[in-house]
Amino acid sequence: MVHHLFKDFLENQEVYVLNENDWKDQFDNLLSQNGTSLVCREWLKTRFSNGVKFFDGNPIFSVLCPSLNRAVRIIQEELTNDHLVISAWLDEFPTGDDQETIKELVIVLELSEESRDLAKGLIKAWLVENAGCEEMQNLIDKEMTSPLIHRHPRQLQHLLPTHTFLGSLTIMEVHVFYDWPRLFTCQNACGQLFLAVWFDETESADFWLYVNLSPQRLVAIRTGQIDLYDAFRGAENHWVYQVTTYYDERVSQIEAVSCDTIDEDWLPKPGQRLSGASPTELIYGISREILEQVLQQLVDQPFKIEKSAANEEWGTNCKEWETKRAA
């Protein structure tokens, strides 16, 4: 639990200005306490051309030290929880006149006494002690991996919804992976296919959209004939599912949403498509998954299968597929 400061800085403009002034005071004190003669000046604009302030904390404070060609930018975010929330990185900003760039320390935080102290430590190292970039990066890595600092833990077993009417799901193919699967195809025990896309996260949960698909439609999506936006907006049965999965043991939440009322922010951008597999490859790929399950059932329960024309045709198709696949 941390001690927050200027809690309603985004709602109250007077508090916002006090918050800005506090950063200036903290910076001036930091310089004077360390007896430095460093000359710095306010740097980035936080007003539009007509004078209206951004009032969004992006940034709340920035300063440039011309003699070092270094700058600090602090982005202050809305409070979301009682943990220590802070992140930092080094960046470069072009000067505008030549190829030279300003080296910049960027700090993003939710303001608390604890995060402010950490930020001041980084600023001191960057400007007062003039730490090298490698040294600075090491310091950032060290400070930002403190166990106090809130992270976003995520375990694979918490990605798929559990105890919902979608059933027990198995991922068949991951189409987009970024640290964890963001877009994938999955299947439940009844063989129903779903396309799932991640669209947001909080400190404790991920938010997904699931859409039920026919194998034909999956092929069309997988080959890029249907874009990802239409995959959900134009769902075959006109409904999608908004799913919330939690990083802990909480039971997933699920809600059916009509295609017409899906929030645009949840959907992939129009025009984004998958590609890379031919329809033929996919048909065999998908069929094989289903095929193997059905074949396994045949092996397990041979007496329940009655010989029929449909089964014979199905068996012939299987052999043809296998022959083509082997070829």
Binding site: W43, L44, K45, F48, S49, N50, V52, F54, D56, N58, P59, S62, R73, I75, E77, E78, T80, V85, I86, S87, W89, F93, G96, E104, V106, V108, E110, H152, D179
Partner: peptide
């Protein structure tokens, strides 16, 4: 928003999204 307020004058540097930028 910038356009609605007459534009944005240099030097401006804004990072998105709002909130902690995981892995930058």
């Amino acid at each position: 928003r910038a356009t609605a307020n007459g534009g944005a004058d240099a030097q401006v540097s804004i990072s998105f999204p709002k909130g902690i930028k995981v892995k930058g």
